[in-house]
Amino acid sequence: MNELLKIYEVAPRVKKYVVHTPVVSKHCLPGQFVIVIVHEGGERVPFTICDYDREKETITLLVQEVGYSTHKMAELKEGDSLYALVGPLGNPTDLDMYENLVLVGGGIGCAVIYPQAKLRKQKGLKSNVIMGARTKDLLFDIDEFKANCENVYISTDDGSLGTKGFVTTVLQERIDAGDKIDCVLVVGPMIMMRNVAELTRKYNIPTVVSMNTIMVDGTGMCGGCRLTVGGETKYACVDGPEFDGHKVDFEEAMNRSRFYREKEEKCRLRG
């Protein structure tokens, strides 16, 4: 169970893992996530599902090495198995009512919007995509997006590919060009999701963001993933992970997401 059938390095310190999991692959939909424990005794880490194949009974996870557990995961080889994998968790993306959907991905967030583009194509729905990263080496799967989307727009901070600037630079261009945009789904770092939401707020474009918060159980028990949406406390694991980007309190969410990262933290972080 949970065998890693294929591992690809798609960018420096970013790998794609194709995991054999009949149970999750049978039921998962775009927007949902899993919780992984890499080794026995390890921590529970949430990852959004980036692709799935019901016939081959696999899901794909995209993992960037950022901390102890993701580093441990990067040490695994094809044929190894994850100690535990639970899911699919959270609610699937529900945006089929929008004809003109723009998918915005930042960094590894691009991978998270991919299954949505693919499923829309299968359903005969169109989508446009804006992919952004610091530099072109951090972008991947552009051809896969091209095969599933009407238009693929790219931005890089350093201008090494596509428009020089941010995803918001491109989104502003598309708005200025008069593109019809019914809704924006944006997945990436919180600060990027906030900036996109701030831009679309001006044009009253409904905007959905995917909140990758700190979690322990992922099933609505610990409350660690709570955030404020429209003045109310919500739980990313059972109420989300997708929320109305115009209502999310990003300042608070960003502060909470830094909690276990802060260097001066007195907690016993290891690894």
Binding site: R44, M221, Y260, G271
Partner: peptide, 25 residues
Amino acid sequence: SSANELLTRVNLMQAYKDEAITPVY
């Protein structure tokens, strides 16, 4: 935090042990 979160980190994830990976504040 909720008591559930503190207790889950410490009990289920054994964050009180020196070798634990799961952090606890």
